[in-house]
Simulated assay, not measured.
Amino acid sequence: MRALDPAIAGQLAASLPEAEFQRLLRTFEADLGRLADDYGRAAAAEDSDGLRRAAHSLAGAAAAIGAGRLEAAARSAMEGQGTADTAGQIRDEAAAALAALAALSAPVGQDGSGSADG
Results as ranks from 00 to 15, higher is better:
7 A>S: 14
81 Q>A: 14
50 G>H: 02
64 A>S: 15
80 G>P: 06
40 G>K: 13
99 A>Q: 10
18 E>N: 11
76 S>N: 12
72 A>N: 11
84 A>K: 15
107 P>T: 11
35 L>H: 01
101 L>D: 01
63 A>Q: 09
4 L>S: 01
14 A>G: 13
40 G>S: 14
87 A>G: 06
93 E>G: 01
23 R>C: 04
33 G>I: 02
18 E>P: 13
105 S>Q: 13
115 S>G: 10
117 D>H: 14
69 R>D: 02
12 L>C: 05
110 Q>C: 10
62 A>F: 00
11 Q>D: 14
30 A>I: 05
30 A>F: 05
59 A>Q: 11
102 A>V: 09
29 E>T: 13
99 A>E: 11
14 A>Y: 11
12 L>K: 08
88 G>A: 14
53 R>S: 09
100 A>Y: 02
27 T>P: 04
54 A>V: 00
102 A>F: 04
19 A>W: 03
107 P>M: 11
74 A>E: 00
47 D>M: 05
79 E>P: 07
41 R>P: 03
85 D>V: 10
37 D>M: 09
28 F>V: 14
38 D>V: 03
105 S>I: 01
68 G>Y: 03
108 V>E: 15
2 R>S: 13
51 L>Y: 02
110 Q>W: 14
88 G>R: 13
32 L>P: 00
114 G>E: 08
22 Q>E: 12
35 L>Y: 01
12 L>G: 01
70 L>V: 02
35 L>G: 00
83 T>L: 06
66 G>L: 02
44 A>D: 10
42 A>C: 04
104 L>V: 06
15 S>P: 07
110 Q>N: 08
43 A>P: 03
82 G>D: 05
90 I>T: 04
115 S>P: 08
85 D>C: 09
38 D>I: 02
12 L>A: 03
14 A>F: 08
33 G>N: 09
104 L>Q: 07
49 D>E: 15
26 R>V: 07
48 S>Y: 10
87 A>H: 06
116 A>G: 06
63 A>T: 09
104 L>F: 04
42 A>Y: 01
51 L>S: 06
10 G>N: 06
69 R>S: 08
97 A>I: 00
16 L>G: 02
70 L>P: 01
26 R>Q: 13
107 P>I: 08
89 Q>T: 15
16 L>C: 08
39 Y>K: 09
73 A>S: 12
28 F>P: 00
99 A>F: 05
40 G>R: 15
77 A>G: 07
10 G>T: 02
11 Q>H: 15
93 E>R: 12
46 E>R: 14
